[in-house]
Amino acid sequence: MTAGYSRILAVFAFIAILVTLPLWIRDTFYVNIASQILIWSIAAMGLNLLVGYAGLVSLGHASLFAIGGYAVGIAITSGFDQLTAFVIGLAIILLISAIFGALALRSTGIGFLMITLAIGQILWGVAYRWVSLTNGDNGISIPARPQPFGLDIEGPTPFYYLALAVFILALAFTSRLVLSPLGAAIRGTRDEPRRMTALGYNVWLTRYIAFVMSGFLSGIAGLLFLYYNGFVSPQVLTVQSSSEILLMVLSGGSATIFGPFVGALVIVFMKNVASSFVERWSLVLGLIFVLIIIFIPEGIVPGLARLKTGFGGARRIRAVPAPSGEAS
């Protein structure tokens, strides 16, 4: 039981640090970076539901991240008010996730990865080429951040608290889901899909629900991203962008609650801070990718746990699921 209490204590300490963060770091540059980390954490938490818990590796998640931002941006520029635009955004995220998932789940394993990559490219193509709708390469801008419940979130610190509130909600939702019957079912379909079918589970539908939840969570992060930048462009939908989210999941540790946060922390920090010293972000990204896959395939959080328990009792967790070629 003491282990349970110390865990709860650690979570509270973690949240307390996040809540008081703007008080310690006065520099708005770093407050903004903290907001970015939270936004990408939420996106990675969404992808983690799929990659970590359902065992389905998607390379098209950036398009689900960006789609809501585009929907809201287009709605606002065509004259809708912020609230309506927000609701339209949520609806579009759900709709596209539902279609995307139905197509991608024709397959699992490597096939799933290839289809998500291809569909991600289609959506990138729409954003990049359908200039009359998406403004092409220039992207879509919104004039101002919304004022949810009349709150002003234009400043870095108020916006940080908005991102933090959504982050905590997402964290609560995922940690709840993982302990729930549905969460157990989702992991079951990852490990033993045949057995799950024989036990009466609808494996396809379970995966589909995981996909839509995953897309929805990542899409919400994308809305925050739009509000943060005031701007969304095809750059956000590229394979590289999808790969960054995936790398956050894998580097932090897939199928862990805090892995996506740790991954987002590392990647966003490297991207923002390191890239002001080193110019070559792609190179760094590629190198981290290769190094993580070769040396700590289970990710940072489980990797640290392994160090703590000693190498003797190390159990290798499959960070990336082996493809299961079964038809369901």
Partner: peptide, 14 residues
């Protein structure tokens, strides 16, 4: 749970 509606519940603590 395979035979129970509970298997779709995302909120309950199993």
């Amino acid at each position: 749970m395979g035979l129970m509606p509970l298997r779709w519940n995302p909120f309950a603590n199993l």
